[in-house]
Every structure is written in structure tokens, then in C-alpha cells.
Amino acid sequence: MKKITIAVMLVSALALTACSKNRFNGQDGTAGAGTIQPGSANDPSSPAYFNQTIGDRVLFAVDQSTLSAEAQSVLTQQATWLSNNPAYSAIVEGHADEQGTREYNVALGARRASAVQSFLIERGVAPNRLKTVSYGKERPLAVCSEESCYAQNRRAVTVLTSAAGS
């Protein structure tokens, strides 16, 4: 019994840390109107522009993985940005709301991530720059148990990574 708690997965912990370091989170764009602050959300070559100005996520209807016109518009801009910024790759994370069983939601998140991946590839992003993962209902963004939160959680998020960090 004593041995059991020793099985700490150090390797995986390191791998996850490395992974999160390669992610570029949005930064607050504090530049004044008309000026372009490098790296800010109004610098079209910045990850902040991708995450905030274009939008890094698209939302889905209940149980669905079809891309709305609005989602397609966002993803078209994401594809353009990725084409213009070859130093970046991306992991598309698929998510579901809590109104479903665990396994089904993992599969549903996979469908959503794949729908986004396929769309980006159709718009010219090289397949080897895009990976997918599903978190099912395990990583909700909004925590209330109402449709206003569920709608935010039914999402696919295109998370930028450095091209080298494959």
C-alpha cells in the first residue's frame, strides 16, 4: 500500500509544462487608436491579434459539430493568419457542455475539433501544422448550469503553438 503513492508521473508533468510554455496567450492591447503596438491585438502578425481580434474559438449548437456562417468567417480569418505566419502551428481543442455523459462528450469534442481542423485545411493550412484534442466536458470555461454558460462551453479553440514545438 505504501508504494502506491510513489507512482508520480514526472515525465508527463514535464511534458505538460513544456507544452503550456509554447502557448501564446492573448495580451492586452494597450496601444492608442491608429498606432500599431507590436505584439498587441492590433498588430496583425501577433498571436494576440489571432486570439482576440480574429477570435481563437468558434461555438456550436447542442450536440452539433456543424460550423455556422459566423464560425466559418472566423475560421477563414484564422486560416489566413496561419498562412501568413508560418512560424506557428495550432492544436484545435474540442469541448462540450456538461449536459451529456462523459464518453459521449469526449467523442463529441473530437467531432468539433475535427470539423475546425478540416475547415482550416480546406482553406489552405498545411495538415501537419494542425493537431486536434478533445476534452469533452472536462474543461468548462463558464461554470453556471444554464444555457448562457453551456453555449460558451460548446466550443473549439484554436490554440497557437510555436512551429518548432511539435
Binding site: M1, I4, T5, A7, V8, M9, S12, A13, L16
Partner: peptide, 9 residues
């Protein structure tokens, strides 16, 4: 008894 740590989902 815990069998893993909480590093990974």
C-alpha cells in the same frame, strides 16, 4: 489509496 497524482487529467 491514491494511484496517480493530479498532474494529468
Amino acid at each position: 489509496t491514491y494511484l496517480t497524482d493530479s498532474q494529468s487529467l
